[in-house]
Design a protein around this nucleic acid. Sequence first.
DNA 1: TGGACCACGCATCAGT
DNA 2: ACTGATGCGA
DNA 3: GTCCA
Length: 648
Amino acid sequence: MGRLKGKKDLQTLTKHFEAFEKGVAKDNAAERSGVTDRKGKGKARSAGQVGLGLGSKVFDGLRFCISPEIGAVSKHKSWWDIIAKMGGTVVIRPDTAITHVIYDGRSAALLARELGLDTLSELPEGTVCVKWDWVVKCKMANKVLETGPWLSFQKTAFNRAFSSNAAIREGSRMRDITTDLLKGRSISITKRREPSASDSETESSKKQRAAPSVLERQPQPPKPVPQRSSEAAPTAPADAYRDNATTHGAGRGPGWENPLANKGDGLDELISGLQDGTIREDEDESVKENGIANEVADDEYEGTNPCLVADKFKCGQNHDGADDKSPNEYLARKFEEMYDLYQGVAGKDFFSVRNYRMAAGIMRRTPWPITKGADASKIKGIGANLAERWIDEFLSGRPGRLFYEDTSQARAIAAFKDIYGVGKSQANELYKRGARSIDDLRADPERYGLTSGQQVGLELYDDLRARIPREECKAIYDLVRSEAMAIDPKLWIEIMGSYRRGQEASGDVDFLITEDTEDGGSHAGVMGKLVNRLRDRGVITHELSQPHDWRALEAKWMGVGRATPEGKYRRIDILCIPFDQWGAALIYFTGNDVASAPSQTITAGRGLSMGKGSGSGCSGSGRPKDRLDVRSASLESGFWASIGYRFV
DNA sequence: TGGACCACGCATCAGT
DNA sequence: ACTGATGCGA
DNA sequence: GTCCA
């Protein structure tokens, strides 16, 4: 009887709560400035005002934790409101300053779990668990009543454990609000997870984890195509394709040779050029951002990096080795540490984390030694926050916030994030809900409300995490291609990703499919047939996402399959694209970290965008950026040249 | 002070 | 049933 | 997180 159906509930409620907190802050401000008539509308409010009279803060100094409950958003809202009106403070997660917990349920173990604690003994000493009724009575009496009759749990095991276990709390890392006022910081409970008696009592009857969502549903049968060809592609006016057609017909550019006729197409050569040792496959993220950072830094300090473009994506630049050139290597590493650490941490927004990474690049590229934060804040990209809060702390040499981060938590969350379908947000949520290992999740999947896709990810955790040997990619490719050919021999189908980059192993296998429209052909509808056939052959075993429109020229399918019934399960993506995007898509979806990631970045930096939007120049929308349709192949070579990027 | 900064398609879900 | 927001992968 | 209107 999960009171908490899923993590979504908590998230939703949290959102409401944040809104509520804002409202309270505003109200307080308004009160201070003498505005008494607030535009509140709940009956709870007026009742409270009537009952209390002005300035009567019955709950002044008390701090309440109300555990989230599903399907009760409005109830909680009114509860918060009432307590706030009575002068109390409301929090949604327990901290070291709470005085009361509102709980109407029946089991201490349940409550502990809902609070994200291992046991209630982690609550601050003296915390009282009371039923909501107590608040109501207090409100009516206009004073704080004895809690006796309204205790959530009568004097029993809980209360005993409570008082006798005070010492344990030393180890608990429940948020100490006296030292940690940081907003958004997640509460970390690192006490070893010891299943309590009540845990097993309430959980043992759980049924086996839900079966992985094996395919049972067939894609819809093909329908007649209303639209006739890619000319009608919605992404750009027909004019935009004129040029493409030319290049198209010529078929000169890299990636334009028909793979059927010519297995190794032009891009392969380009790719091989990429691999000549200066480029490391796994550099990914930091590379592109360093690119920006370099640019930024270079603006400020000309001459430090004479060969800007050339250097930018040569990831050969030492990342971890001694970089003697930089007097600020120490700081750079610290920021890289921060980036690694916070990347998986909820509560840090995308841009903040990205800036840590940028800061690392800036540090490394700043030619003069930074000795204090104030110096650094002069640099574009380093603001007051980074300078004062972080750089000064790093330079002080004292263990700072970074030092105190909980690595066991980080490790658990990192493991969760490796589950397909579980990202930063969910990984943190799972931890909050008490999970500490993959086995915890497997032992009781229902408790965590995993989606079907996530269940597949959990079920196939090891397989999906494993790299796929090139050999096996090839085997899968052959299977897929033969089915595709059986559907329509004129299809173009190419394997993408790291396989295409010549890597020895890949994380997944993805396919790009199109068909030349020249002779009226079209690959519309192929996706469904192909998936069906592969499923029948047992190549495809699980489905993770389907295209909205199986017959669209642009469609994406994601799932799991294997080359042989004994083989490991592998992630498989299939992508259909309009024919005229083939060339660009080859580059784009080959997804080379060197080519694709920085190309987005670098174009963005130059006021261009790789979005699939309009053709060139959409000033009408007032958009600051000119749009360059990269997907139009004719622009391809010119595009890459225009941004000053060369493959070799 | 508040918005821009940011790929995009699909799944899921809150709100209505 | 529909819409908009969010999370996710890549 | 920083930067800019």
